[in-house]
Design a binder for these strands. Sequence first.
RNA 1: GCUCGGGUGGCGGAAUUGGUAUACGCGUUCGACUUAAAAUCGAAUCUCGUAAGGGGUAUGGGUUCGACUCCCAUCCCGAGCACCA
Length: 847
Amino acid sequence: MKAYDHKKIEKKWQNIWDKKGIYKASDSSKKPKYYSLIEFPYPSGAGMHVGHIRSNTAMDIISRKRRMEGYNVLYPIGWDAFGLPTENYAIKTGIHPIKVTKDNTDTFRRQLKALGFSFDWSREINTTDPKYYKWTQWIFLQFLKKGLAYKAKMNINWCPKDKIGLANEEVVDGCCERCGTAVEKREKEQWMLAITKYADRLDKDLDTVDYLSKIKIQQRNWIGRSEGAEIEFHLTPSPSPLQGEGGRRSGEVVKVFTTRPDTLYGATYLVLAPEHPSLVKLKSKITNWGKVTQYILDSKAKGGIERTKDEKEKTGVELEGIKAINPATSEEISVWVADYVLSNYGTGAIMAVPAHDERDFEFAKKYDLKIVPVVLSGGSVQEGWSLDNYSNEWNAQYSNFGKLINSGRFDGLESEIAKKKIVDFVGGKEKVSFKLRDWVFSRQRYWGEPIPVVHCGKCGVVPVPEKDLPVVLPKVKNYQPTDSGESPLANITKWVNVKCPKCKGLAKRETDTMPNWAGSSWYYLRYIDPKNKKEFASQKNLKYWLGSPKQSGGGTGGVDWYNGGMEHTTLHLLYSRFWHKFLYDLKLVPTSEPYEKRTSHGMILASQGEKMSKSKGNVVNPDDIVKTYGADTLRLYEMFMGPFDQSVSWSTDSLIGPRRFLEKVWKIASQLEQNSAHLTLPGVPGGTYATQNFALATALLHKTIKKVTDDIEGMKFNTAISTLMIFVNEIGKFESIQKEDYENFLKLLSPFAPHITEEIWSNLGHKNSIHLSVWPEYNEALIKDKEIKIVIQINGKVRAEMMINGDDGEDEVKGQALSNEIISKYLKDFEVKKVIYVKNRLLNIVV
RNA sequence: GCUCGGGUGGCGGAAUUGGUAUACGCGUUCGACUUAAAAUCGAAUCUCGUAAGGGGUAUGGGUUCGACUCCCAUCCCGAGCACCA
């Protein structure tokens, strides 16, 4: 018997698959299409992480199964290669990012091929290829044309170490996501993308897609849609000159956004954010302006980091000389500036209802402000007041929704109903607010797509004509961003100075580049038609691969199944949905959503449960594992190690289990080759015993088919593999199996371990690849057991087991149980009160 | 603080979704083969108990004939968000 030599087998088949192109997707096929997608990797210098293999293998299994089920499968691969690490490496070493990227992608490609993924390599893409980013720039120009790309002077998050502006989404705990340096505020002109224009649809359309619920929830929280109302509060100088209603007003109006207009009668003061524009306008009327400006300066200096610190006590200053009028009660209330109110959410001003908002409550407590409860969630008013006014219990009593009190004509109404009525009463406007902010799209960096516009003294911002795309990154000597905050491109005068496309006068190129999220926002579309020179992808191919909503049976259409990391939920996943919707509105893509189904994998941690990192020296190199155990073993192990969506710790010791399993599979197959129709393992000479066991093996096979088929769909790869292991263990006991049954077993194993199964398949005399064979179906009749073991319990405790026939009715089983020797012994001294029978499972006798 | 996960042998984990808790794998122990070792094969492996039997899925309570699973409270771990009005 030949030994199982993974090195030889894996190399051999990888070459044959490559040569025959069996994983190439066809753009014109009569088969139904299936588009499965993984997040294309960032080719880091460290080479592939074992975590990549987990996600890639999962989708490889799905893709291989779909092919065997008769689909025309697209499972593509490419490189998301723009970005900071490569640029930082270039700064350090002086090696050009193009060269670094080429070296890194070469490593990744070799590693991916060594694992036998069924990618269609003919569609490989690279975001740093001018032929690719031509279309990234083109899409940007469409945003510009529609007014969704705009330049704004704004306070941006500035990382003093990386010298780069960061999107809100890239700031973690007030620090730069990449280097951990505390982020500063800095005013800068930035290109922005108006993702907030799509906020409502990005939220609502989550209902139409099949995403894991935790992914939907995270996106929803990020978009942060809340329904409420905008209500105007008139300000008045105080004391008010008694000139009637109109005379009381100072003319200044503050708009407030609230999600709880029903609590308006409880609004006992008003708070403005330190950045609120009304403050400056009111300067002359505020009698303690010195104190107020000091407070504003202090809170601005603190920046976003300290202001959002958890433990921080709330602070604020009353605007003396100013009062506001509560439009519901017409009472004068005080006005404060406090940094617990944020300028960039809602209107930058709130009506404070201390009885029903914890933050307002805390603030009111500190500055001794009036607290008026206006909603009663349960119990009576007396009960509520009997609690300590200044305890949290008191607050909780009144925080919920319920019937209104102390609210004039609205007393007794349910808060939900009162909302609208009170808004109408004070002439407010129903409004929806979002947490989501526009996307800062500029980077003052070299290694990104140049933003394709020209600045002309006469014509202003002029887009580069589409025929002149791509605007190619010029060669520079120094990749370091300039201290002024400009991109290194600003130093290349030859490149910067151009003729204005409109007036032909002197003009300058934009030197900012795009963030690395740009290229990844649409890459799944390029796979569909990667070599197209006229469009980012042809309409014909887009229609075929994304399908129309109707075509895919009620779903949204789009990529059929996309797996990726949870960490990309609020950045990449949301951004690409935004781009896709924009392209949909331009009628350039056929579906309103890019991905029909999205799942996520858990992280692979080092053995101690910590993250794998170079600095900790606990990184596992896949090359070593492939060398000693083989790609099939590694694939199998990564799928077996734990539930797919949860994080798991790496254990090199445990790799031996899957390897032993494959050895057993190999051994059985080697014996099978000697006999054309069936296998008899040593020790049993055949005859009737063997024949009987053939039937046992067949029955087990069909159960295995069902379980493995179902488990793959549910991404329960770990239990699918354990089922396959059980099959092999049992076959060892039966000691005989028909060739056909073993072949079907191999098919079930083939998506997990494509090399060894292909080798055995070919040794068994098959000319065509196992990966192009037909996925086995199970026979319902064979799955049904003729004899079933059931458990007999007395008062819920297991006392005996017995065999019954599969078709036995309840009465038969009962009778059989009561006459059971052990049971009758137990029942001698007791009276049977009740008997519960769970079909084919157990019988519980209550005494 | 809020939201979402999770807590099961020495370890990774299973449990048909309310029906025999610990499948499968790792490790460990014993045995077979071997001059020996490795590999392989066989047996054992939650816990107390000689046994009959008892206890046991983070903790305390509840619902149920029956709870890892459902409900209430508490503790711990992980992820995300965070003064979002």
